[in-house]
């Protein structure tokens, strides 16, 4: 059984003359336990696709099956529950809560699913931030903030990590560090990862590369030998 099965998925914004068709009749299967990259230029519909997969938005038409559950038929409450227990999000702009320190940001997520503060701390150790747990987002560098964001996403042990250009706002070295963390999590915990990027180079680290253009799937390819983050350059 696939992790995700997308059937005739479409998403439109606006109406009339200002209608934007962000996703057009997308059919896609994403297997379990893979590191998949969704590759496309700006405006190709990558983030829209991610939003649909993470129950962050509703499609205009079509169906998304998560396993055999039709998440497009979920009620608002079920969608919230799905996001809370099943999905971990990593955003390009980190989106940490500025009023909470690193540990508290992670705890905010773990408490919701009934995990202990120790789980939050363990996640921060895993992303290499054990010495920065009491720091507030404003006191952390971009890379550190993104690692807190990853810790927040993985601490609740989600089935899927949805990453929306997590290296987009980072310099090369920091970006590599973030990719390594994600790779490590994928490897050690077997978490499925969907990673959005516009970088052909970053796509080389994935198991599967899904190419998107103007809201349509252009190709789905498998990398025979996914590269390690240190092997790519952009």
């Amino acid at each position: 059984m696939n992790l995700y099965t997308l059937k005739a998925l479409s998403k439109n914004y606006g109406e009339g003359d200002s209608l934007v068709r962000a996703l057009r009749d997308v059919y896609l299967e994403i297997p379990h336990g893979r590191f998949a990259v969704v590759l496309g230029a700006s405006g190709s519909g990558k983030s829209t696709l991610l939003n649909m997969l993470g129950c962050m938005d509703r499609p205009t038409a079509g169906q998304i099956l998560f396993g055999d559950a039709d998440i497009t038929a979920y009620s608002k409450r079920e969608m919230t529950q799905f996001r809370k227990t099943t999905i971990g999000f990593v955003f390009q702009s980190y989106n940490l809560l500025p009023d909470l320190n690193a540990l508290e940001n992670v705890e905010f997520s773990t408490e919701m699913v009934g995990l202990s503060p120790a789980d939050a701390e363990r996640a921060l150790v895993q992303v290499g931030l054990s010495d920065r747990i009491k720091h507030f987002p404003g006191q952390l560098s971009g890379g550190e903030q993104q690692r807190v964001s990853i810790a927040r996403a993985i601490a609740k042990q989600p089935k899927v990590l949805l990453c929306d250009e997590p290296t987009g706002a980072l310099d090369f070295e920091t970006g590599i560090m973030v990719l390594e963390v994600l790779k490590q999590i994928h490897r050690e915990q077997g978490t499925s990862i969907l990673f959005i990027t516009h970088s052909q180079e970053i796509a080389k680290i994935a198991d599967i590369v899904i190419r998107l253009r103007s809201g349509e799937i252009m190709s789905v390819t498998e990398n025979e030998r996914p590269l390690e983050p240190r092997e790519v350059e952009w």
């Binding site: 962050m56 409450r77 919230t80 996001r83 999000f89 955003f91 989106n95 809560l97 919701m112």
Partner: peptide, 14 residues
């Protein structure tokens, strides 16, 4: 607005 979106994304209920 954005932060509220993040709360929701993290699964915070209404």
């Amino acid at each position: 607005g954005r932060q509220i979106g993040v709360y929701k994304a993290l699964g915070v209920t209404d």
